[in-house]
């Protein structure tokens, strides 16, 4: 799914001060029964965010919010950037985690590192992942604590993050990810332009490893 093009934006930051946030915590299993891509924003971080248990089909607006959870605090209500610790998104491959973060309104997640499958899922959906040194992340956490309404400016084309004091932090982006963010991208369509190459590969393999091609034509 090509996301709409993004070049530069400024947004408030919410700090989620935990390492190893897993995808079970991002979207709990009961919501994975849905066969749709939407409806996950309201249940992002469900078990931390609400005091009562939730089930699919509930009116989540009526549930009891946990006032201690960071996203429920008024100063972070409009946050569009999530700041967190290492190995964010570990565990299950559920892409619902990315859909939930995006539907909630997050456009970028900043952390020292991300789990592999989660990162691929984020890339495929145009959720920007910004990897920064541990010390830099630490300084951002300090900044968010110190200042109400702390916001960061993200410049995708320059691959740069600017904090309120004007400090700039550059970040790496894979070429494909960058292109998807800036221009949108239909990766499957691109791959299918090479269908003849794929067919030729299958042809070759069906000779080398015929037992894998009982269905060869």
């Amino acid at each position: 799914m090509p996301a709409s093009a993004v070049t530069r934006f400024s947004a408030c930051v919410a700090p989620l001060d935990r390492p190893n946030v897993d995808t079970d915590a991002i979207v709990p299993k009961q919501y994975l029964k849905s066969i749709r891509r939407t409806g996950f924003g309201a249940v992002l971080f469900d078990e931390w965010r609400y005091l009562d248990a939730g089930e699919p089909g509930d009116d989540h607006g009526k549930r009891r919010q946990n006032p201690d959870f960071v996203l429920n605090q008024s100063r972070y209500r409009n946050a569009r950037i999530l700041l967190t610790r290492e190995n964010f998104g570990c565990g299950s491959s559920r892409e619902h985690a990315v859909w939930a973060l995006q539907e909630y309104g997050f456009r970028a997640v900043v952390a020292p590192s991300f789990a592999d499958i989660f990162a691929t899922n984020a890339d495929n959906n145009g959720l920007l992942l910004i990897r920064l040194e541990v010390a830099v992340v630490e300084s951002l956490f300090a900044g968010v604590q110190a200042q109400q309404g702390y916001s960061l400016t993200v410049d995708v084309s320059q691959q740069r993050l600017v904090d309120p004091a004007g400090h700039e932090h550059s970040f790496a982006l894979d070429a494909v990810v960058r292109r998807r963010l800036l221009h949108g991208l239909d990766r499957i369509g691109e791959i299918l332009r090479h269908r003849e190459v794929i067919r030729a590969y299958e042809q070759r393999r069906s000779v080398q490893v015929p037992w894998l091609f009982p269905d060869a034509t």
Partner: peptide, 30 residues
Amino acid sequence: DSHTSTNGALGALAFGIGTSEVECVLATQC
């Protein structure tokens, strides 16, 4: 499913993928 790695015990390259990748493999086998 992330535990696809189980199948690596056979001497295979086996790994879990997300739903967008599932769609890609359905459409292209790649």
